[in-house]
């Protein structure tokens, strides 16, 4: 099940300067009842985005036509809480390919990478300047270059490098997933099982 390949993306951004955005906000629990991965984008940020009667909340950023693009810029500690991968499916399903923040929760970060969504960690200062630039000019673009591991605010040229391990980078560049790797390593798995000291009592 290969993912979409990722290399370079230049896009306008959607700013969400809220800290500790938890996965219950990204996709509320009552929408986790599906048995496939489709349609979660429709309910992305459901309770921030829609009123009880399903009309859009005018003051929520996704309902503001001024802002758009394939990059979501979020406040510190993005994706905390529940391990639900549905959060990554909702973000991908809505059309985001990158989430930029100064800090991500661990499980969300892994889930995003496993679904071809690139989490990009920037410094708090750079994040603040991104928010300011996007607010000032919603047409501001950001370029994320995975090969070079760089993120650039195109209007000023300010750029930072971001970290990603070589293995995951290769997966993202080529659209590979982890199961391909694990299955290729089956002999080692069987060898581990036969030599594990705990096998005498487990």
């Amino acid at each position: 099940m290969s993912n979409q390949k990722f290399n370079i993306l230049t896009s306008t951004c959607v700013p969400l300067p809220i800290e500790n955005v938890d996965t219950d906000q990204i996709i509320p629990a009552r929408f986790l009842k599906a048995t496939d991965k489709n349609g979660f984008g429709d309910n992305l940020f459901r309770d921030w985005r829609f009123n009880k009667d399903n009309t859009p909340k005018a003051d929520f950023i996704l309902n503001n036509p001024t802002f758009g693009g394939e990059i979501l810029v979020g406040g510190k500690n993005f994706g905390s809480g529940s391990s639900r991968e549905h959060a990554a499916w909702a973000i991908a399903g809505y059309g985001f390919r990158v989430v930029i923040s100064s800090f991500f929760a661990d499980i969300f970060k892994g889930n995003a990478l496993n679904n071809g969504v690139l989490p990009v960690v920037v410094s708090e200062g750079f994040l603040a300047r991104l928010f300011a630039a996007i607010e000032a000019n919603p047409k501001s673009t950001v370029t994320v270059n995975l090969e070079a591991q760089s993120v650039t605010l195109d209007s000023t040229g300010e750029s930072e490098s971001f970290e990603i391990n070589a293995y995951k980078k290769n997966c993202m560049l080529n659209g590979y997933d982890d199961i391909d790797y694990l299955l290729s390593n089956m002999a080692k798995i069987v060898e581990f099982e036969t030599t594990d000291v705990r096998s005498t009592f487990a």
């Binding site: 991968e85 499980i107 496993n114 199961i179 299955l183 390593n185 798995i189």
Partner: peptide
Amino acid sequence: FGIGTSEVEMVLASQCILQPRP
């Protein structure tokens, strides 16, 4: 530790998971 659904699939398929060491 908690994992995502892609990782559930990994464990079902291989009894293993790929994790950065915390």
